[in-house]
Simulated assay, not measured.
Amino acid sequence: MVAFKHARDAADFGLAIQTLLFGTAWSPEIDDVYVALAQEAHEEMLLNEDPKKAAERRAREGGAAMHQWEDEVNYPLNWNGIRVRVGMHWGVGSVKFDPVSQGYDYYGTLVNTAARVEGVGNGGQVLATKDMYAQLEEEGFDFGAVDLKPMGPQPLRGLDQPVPLFQLCPLELRGREFAALRLDVENDLDDSTTASTTRGDGTDTNHSGVEETPELMLARLLKRQKDSGPMMEYLLRVVQFMETLLRTSPLSWRKETVKTLLKKWHVHARKPREKEAAEMTLTYDLTALVARAGLAAEEARRAGTTKSAGTRTDANSSVGRRLFHKRSSVSVVSIIPDETDAVASTR
Rank of each mutant, 00 (worst) to 15 (best):
Q167W: 06
L168Y: 09
L168Q: 09
C169P: 07
E172H: 00
E172P: 03
L173D: 07
R176P: 02
L181K: 00
L181C: 03
E186A: 14
S192I: 10
S192K: 00
T194H: 03
T197S: 07
T197G: 07
T197A: 09
R199A: 14
R199Q: 12
D201E: 01
G202F: 01
D204G: 04
E215G: 06
E215T: 08
L216G: 02
L216E: 02
M217K: 00
M217S: 04
A219Q: 08
R224M: 15
K226W: 04
S228A: 13
S228I: 06
M232Y: 11
Y234F: 15
Y234V: 12
V238A: 14
V238S: 13
V238W: 04
F241I: 04
E243K: 01
E243S: 03
L245D: 14
L245Q: 12
L246T: 08
S249R: 12
P250A: 06
L251Q: 03
R254V: 11
K255S: 10
E256D: 12
V258W: 01
T260H: 12
K264P: 01
V267R: 00
H268A: 15
R270A: 05
R270L: 05
P272A: 15
P272H: 12
E274F: 15
E276C: 11
A278C: 11
L282S: 03
Y284D: 01
L286R: 01
L286G: 00
